[in-house]
Every structure is written in C-alpha cells, then in structure tokens.
Design a protein around this nucleic acid. Structure first.
Length: 436
RNA sequence: UCCGGCUUAGCUCAGUCGGUAGAGCGGGUGGCUGUUAACCACCAAGUCGUUGGUUCGAGUCCAACAGCCGGAGCCA
C-alpha cells in the first residue's frame, strides 16, 4: 500500500514552480463558490492557499457534480494543471481534471464571518486551520529554528534542563506541584540553574523547552505553560551578555523578515517597526530609567520593579528594543551578581521590545562568590540543602558567567504584532483554559 | 485575589418606553460561465446564562450566583 499519487504531489507554496505541469494537490477546502457552470474551490494545505477552477467543460459530468457538493473543510485530492494567473496573489491557479474526496466535512463551526475569541479558543483545534493562525504558527516555526541556528552556529551545545524539579529556582513565583513517588516535585519554572552547571562543563550551552508558572495572571502577556530558551555562557560578564542578547534578537528578526514576508503581510504587521531592529539597542541604566519614567509622569520610585504601564511608556520612547540594566538587588533573584562597588544593584538586564510589548528577555551575570551566594539563599528563605549541587559550581573552578532567558511566545507576539500571547502557541494553557 | 464589562438561533449581533423574537453568516432546496467573506430566491432553526424578586405582564427593571472577556498585582 502506498498513497504516492500518479502525478507528483506538490505543496501549494511550491506550485508557482510547476506552471504548465499536471500535478496532485492535497488539502482541505477553505471555501467553495459556484456560478452554476463553473466552480471555484480554494484549497489549503498549510503551506498556502490556491484556487482550483473547475468549469463544466473541463471534466466529466460526475466529477463536476461531485465538485459541487464540496463543503468547507472537506479533504480532497485534486489532479489538475497549474496555470499562471495574475489575479491570484500566489501567481497561479489550478485546473481540475480529477477529484478524490477523502471526506465530505460536516457543517463547519468556524464560518466565514467574524467570531468571538472565546468561541475560537474553544475551537482552537480547528482555529489553527485559519489563515491568520497559520501565519502566526509559521512565524513561530521560523523563530524556533532561528533560535536553534543562532546558538548552534556559535558553538553552544543543547543541554536540556529537567522539567521535574525539587524546589523553586528563584523562590518567587508559584509552582505547579506534582506527586512524585510519595514526595512532592514541581514543574520547572526555569532551566537556568542547570545551565550554569552545563556551562561549566561545555563553556556555552542552552536549553529550550516548556516552563510552568502557576501564577493566577489574567493578562495578554501570560500563559501558565510557555516556552523559554535559556543560554548560559562561561567567561561572559554583563556587557558580553547584553551584546549576545542584542545579536540574538537581531538574528531572529532578520530571519523572520527574510522567511515570512507573506505571513507578516497576512498579519498586517508594520514592517518598518521590525526593520528598525538593528544594533545597537539603547542601554538604559536602571537609575536613568527611573528618572525618565518620573519625567514622563510615572509614580514609580527608585527600588521598585516596572509596572506594565511603566514598560509601555518607557519603550515608546525608542524605535527598537532597549536594554535596561543593573536592577536593584532587592527585586532580583538570589543568583544575580551584585555590582562590586554598589551592592544594592545587580549585574542584571532586561530586553524590552518596542511598541508596548515589553520584557522579552531577562538575564544577567551570576554570582560567583560562594559566601555571597550562600547568604543570598538564606536571605531569600530558600532551602540550602537542595542547592548544595549548585554551590559546588562555585567550589570547583568558578568563573565569571552570564546568561539570559527569552520567552518564545512574547517574542512571537511582538514580531507578529499580536494583542495576546494566547495566539502564539498551538494550544495555550491559561487560567481556566485546559481544553482543547 | 481585586476592579470593570459581557451573556438573545450553530456563530456574530440587533431588540426603542416593560406588551410573548429579528438580521447577516453557516445549514437545506433551486438559479447563475471568472468568482474572491461571490450573488439572487425560498426553507428550517430559540429553556433570551441560572435562580429568585418587582409587575396584570420581564429578553428588557432589581438581587445573588455561574461562565467568559479586559485590566491590576506577579512575571518571560
């Protein structure tokens, strides 16, 4: 048995390279129009959409009649000739000489008119077939590949961090508890501590996987399960870290711009905003950021973290991502390196995306001094015993090192110009949202 | 957890001053030789979120609850 067709099976995206040839098209009927003696069938296969035109004179009577019965989302195999057509955005359309209907779809819930978000989220498994969602998913795909390529090409090794962990990495956010052979484990909220270990073994490593936060956040930038890539570099200080993050973001945006033009057009993304993503990103010291925000009317005081609105008004001052650095020690995780001459500050940094998108990267240089680190763990009220292995990294060949974490969904959201991160992952997990 | 909003046909919504329910899309039937969310005609489709209250009478006014949406806090 085989499903290899007689005529070559061509994906929609590649049809313009086969003008004049008879090919096999496989996919789902996005829409069907008819004027009695001529059918227009829009077929989608995930790579694009093509219009199949079937006149009564083009095929036998039975085939023509069958084409007339096609409903939205019916699955089909069509053999026909690829023809150049300037009216099509793809540049080509297809004729129809034979038609195989795999399945005649029932009345499809997602119609051609508008739908509410709640309804669409409940039908996420079907919503993924729509044009806009496919554009977003293809951009996500490109970004994931660009992320891997960036690190792989720079001598990083992929070192997956565990997802089941014994305790909070940072002790800040709420974790999902898991029953683990009679004791309690948690779903990982960050792979970072493990990357510090692997970086001491391989110099430069990264992990890229799902991350879990049990925070009851109901905003456009939160998911309970999201993907994060976390590189960690030995012999890097905070300056090196910022430079790497900057090159990384530029690489991702550049790759999307060269790979996903038509998807960005579908999403009506303003390209000039993305094209501005070139080095150098403005570096804004925390002290300076507070001054700017206060001048702009924010109530923020030195020592606080930015509110959502602060991030928005600050980033609106710039045309590209900015890097805010040296946040106060009090609002950062225990492993952040304290600035030697100003211990109230850490060698930390956040990359904030423009256009109000805000934080997409958080990172910094790590504390290398054993005593300082032990104090910080105590100060944060964390259980020292589960960090013994981590402290070993400062006992055996401790070196300056730094890293960062990039939130994939927030990055996709920014690059696609979306209003909410829930559309950037195939099946979002949110407060009150587990199905589908 | 707190604040605000919404809930009427499968979907998106309208429903005036409180007087027993409407449109478009989708579905069905028929028509149409180039359509682009095609178009035209006809047909079917409703426990107005739930419970209680006010009233001769509630989709409409009041209360509670539920679900969803948005924002805050927290973070990527």
């Amino acid at each position: 048995m085989t499903l290899v067709p007689e005529h070559p099976w061509i994906r929609v995206r590649d049809l313009p390279n086969h003008v004049g040839e008879t090919v096999t098209l496989r996919g789902w009927v996005r829409n069907h129009r008819s004027s009695g003696k001529i059918h227009f069938i829009e077929v989608r296969d995930g790579s694009g959409i093509v219009q199949v035109v079937c006149g009564k004179w083009d095929c036998d009577e039975e085939t023509f009649a069958q084409a007339g019965t096609l409903t939205q989302e019916s699955s089909v195999e069509i053999v026909g000739e690829v023809r150049e057509d300037k009216r099509s955005s793809l540049g080509v359309e297809m004729g129809l000489s034979s038609l195989k209907i795999y399945h005649l779809a029932e009345s499809y819930p997602i119609t051609k008119k508008e739908h509410g978000v709640a309804f669409l989220m409940d039908h996420r498994h079907l919503w993924l077939r729509s044009r806009r969602q496919q554009a977003v998913m293809r951009v996500r795909h490109t970004i994931v590949k660009a992320i891997r390529d960036f690190f792989d090409d720079r001598g990083y090794y992929l070192m997956d961090s565990p997802i089941l962990t014994p305790a909070a990495c940072e002790g800040t956010t709420t974790l999902f508890p898991v029953e683990y052979f009679g004791s309690e484990a948690y779903l990982s909220q960050s792979g970072q501590l493990y990357q510090e270990a692997t970086a001491m073994a391989f110099s430069k490593t990264y992990c890229f996987g799902p991350t879990f936060r049990a925070e009851k956040s109901k905003t456009r930038r939160h998911l309970t399960e999201f993907w994060m890539v976390e590189p960690e570099m030995a012999f890097f200080d905070i300056e090196d870290d910022m430079n790497e993050a900057e090159a990384f973001i530029c690489h991702i945006v550049e790759r999307v711009l060269e790979t996903n033009r038509s998807d960005l057009e579908e999403l009506e993304r303003d390209l000039t905003a993305l094209e501005a993503t070139t080095p150098p990103f403005p570096r804004v010291h925390y002290d300076e950021a507070i001054e700017i925000l206060q001048k702009l009317g924010s109530e923020i005081e030195w020592g606080s973290d930015f509110g959502g609105n602060d991030e928005t008004i600050l980033t609106q001052q710039y045309d590209r991502p900015i890097i805010v650095h040296h946040f106060p020690t009090a609002i950062k995780a225990f492993y952040m390196k304290q600035q030697p001459d100003r211990p109230e500050l850490t060698c930390s940094m956040d990359v904030l995306a423009p256009e109000g998108y805000g934080e997409i990267i958080g990172g910094g240089e790590r504390e290398t001094n054993l005593d300082t680190l032990q104090e910080a763990i105590k100060h944060h009220g964390l259980d020292m015993s589960v960090f013994e292995w981590y402290l070993d990294l400062r006992r055996y060949g401790s070196v300056p090192h730094a890293g960062f974490g990039l939130g994939l969904e927030r990055t996709v959201s920014w690059i696609c110009g979306l209003k909410h991160v829930r559309e950037t992952i195939p099946f979002p997990r949110m407060l009150e949202k587990m199905v589908p």
